[in-house]
Design a protein around this nucleic acid. Structure first.
Lengths: 340, 340
DNA sequence: TTGTAAGCGTTATCAA
DNA sequence: TTGATAACGCTTACAA
């Protein structure tokens, strides 16, 4: 049979209260008794009943993590980090997949969040307004998105763009396209900021905004044709999945990568599966997940500096084609280009 | 404030016991009172306290899912299916990532499993012996692995091999290599069975066992050289990740795919990211996850037939090279080949 | 420093 | 069909 705290107390010759304290607040109990209790607990294979503990203390020992799609490698890695850190701290993690439906996300936050000591939400697509109305009574942390109403952990999206643009510029690219993520995405907006900053600092550089695209393979396929039409010699994609599909479509239109067009992905989730291997902006997803847990459980909010990202150069970026199209196109066909 | 059953009972003018029954076992309560309770509950925004319910009833309303690595797309998709079905049935899901450590898996099953109404375990690498010692007191289901001591849900690994071999044979391949998964893998053993069956049914066919390899990219890279040395014109890989790395290495050794060697993956997790797109044996992972939940919660075990898999033909398989090496090698260099 | 005892919110047993 | 009432196992004032 499963033994209770009573059994432990009985075996150790103390009251249930002392047994409880010995296990939960050891510093309040005399060393001798504490040892006796610990030994009895161990001998009986005692495991505290979390339901009873919760009912009495109000704390569940659970964390709740809501993501749009666990099968998306970005979120899967995030789950891994959250899970690892939570385990270290003795928490179990409810993982809720919202199946890419922002309304379901809100519902899950309300439902499962009520059964946990805190909730972590990764939701690039929920509206700011909807985010504002999420439960603020319990600890709550937003991942890779800021919002005035909540705590958050983010990565340095802006700096990632800066690194990538500098890399491409050094390779001689002078006309670089940006395949944006869905409109309204917080990180997409930050990346556009980074693009602007980067473009201003470099010589003779056009950054061309190719528009907003779905952050799926379909987005990359659609973007490819826009890329070709824009005359850029390099592209930054919103994520690796998009970049891979983009390369696929480019190739099938006869464009050689990286000889004719260089491609940069984002996140480093599936970049290594591409052919050629994708140069990408690596995001420390597991660290981000761990940081989310710490932030959730931290009493003092802290400064919340963005986590650093790192450009990983692989085979999909190369020097700009000689006599590249950059100058040829310089004064035509400029879709909202930023100019240095 | 959050309202309790007492509040509902008070508002509805009934006793807490009746309120409880009205909500949990409606058929035991007179329609009039039931309606009153339901209305009061709704009006007060009543949410049952799961801890209290658990303490009293013994049921947690939680399920536990332990996987070796959530960042692996195979398991991520499985999580998605489990999660979806569990939600439909009103359960929350603890997801535990064992970080590819079978010992940790066992610990997680014991720890988190004790806080749930049932546990689902996907563990290709745990030893049969270790599996035998896992908690049998609560409902427990094994995923894609059979074991006499436990219930399980599996896919038809054997038939998948049959489909793939038939496909390759029809394309004229007469010497086909098998890049196996880790030794001890249950599904790998089933696939070898399928290979044998398939080979026996087809004319002039050699299936060459290339050995056991890690189910990671490294495994695929290592396998590539063995593939080249074996003189096969087609390869079946243990999963898509392995197949993709295999193609990478083959290509860098100057082998053209599919012109010189055809490649077949398994699972259809990342097959579409490859270039060329990978022909693969699609496994219904989400369905498998859903089935695991149903099996876990089913009172009557049922027959447990394997879920069907489906060969998806893409660009990585093509007719065998003319004057292919198959016949040339027919009587030499036969590594444990099965012969029809 | 320790023990007594009162809950925590729900379910389930028993009478009525 | 309904209502008291006693658990469920633990934590935490409060008292000693």
């Amino acid at each position: 049979m499963v033994s209770t705290l009573r059994d432990v107390a009985l075996a150790a010759g103390v009251s249930p209260a002392t047994a409880s304290r010995a296990l939960s607040h050891p510093e309040l109990v005399a060393p001798a008794r504490r040892a006796a209790v610990e030994q009895a607990a161990h001998a009986l294979g005692y495991r505290p009943n979390r339901a009873a503990r919760e009912l009495s203390s109000g704390r569940t020992g659970h964390l709740c993590l809501v993501v749009p799609d666990v099968a998306n490698p970005f979120f899967a890695s995030l789950v891994k980090g959250v899970q690892a850190r939570a385990r270290e701290l003795g928490y179990g993690v409810f993982v809720a997949d919202a199946d890419d439906d922002p309304r379901l996300e809100a519902e899950l936050v309300a439902q499962l969040g009520a059964q946990a000591d805190g909730t972590i939400l990764a939701s690039p697509r929920m509206s700011d307004d909807a985010v504002a109305h999420l439960s603020a009574d319990r600890p709550f942390v937003l991942v890779n998105r800021r919002h005035e109403a909540h705590a958050s952990v983010v990565v340095d999206n802006t700096d990632g763009m800066r690194q990538a643009v500098r890399h491409l510029h050094a390779l001689g690219h002078r006309r670089i396209g940006y395949v944006g993520g869905p409109a309204g995405s917080w990180s997409d907006a930050r990346r556009r900021d980074g693009l602007e900053v980067a473009a201003h600092g470099l010589h003779r550089l056009d950054v061309v905004d190719l528009g907003h695209f779905p952050s799926s393979r379909g987005g990359g396929t659609a973007a490819a044709d826009v890329v070709v039409a824009s005359g850029v010699t390099a592209v930054l994609a919103h994520n690796d999945l998009v970049a891979l599909a983009l390369m696929d479509r480019l190739r099938s239109r006869g464009v050689r990568i990286p000889e004719e067009i260089s491609v940069v992905g984002h996140d480093d989730t599936v970049a290594v599966l591409g052919s050629p291997r994708l140069t990408t902006i690596a995001v420390p997803l597991a660290r981000l997940g761990r940081a989310a847990v710490d932030r959730l459980l931290d009493d003092e909010p802290g400064p919340d500096t963005p986590l650093p990202v790192e450009l990983v150069v692989r085979a999909s970026t190369a020097p700009a084609p000689a006599g590249g199209t950059a100058d040829a196109y310089d004064d035509e066909l400029e879709l909202e280009g930023h100019r240095a």
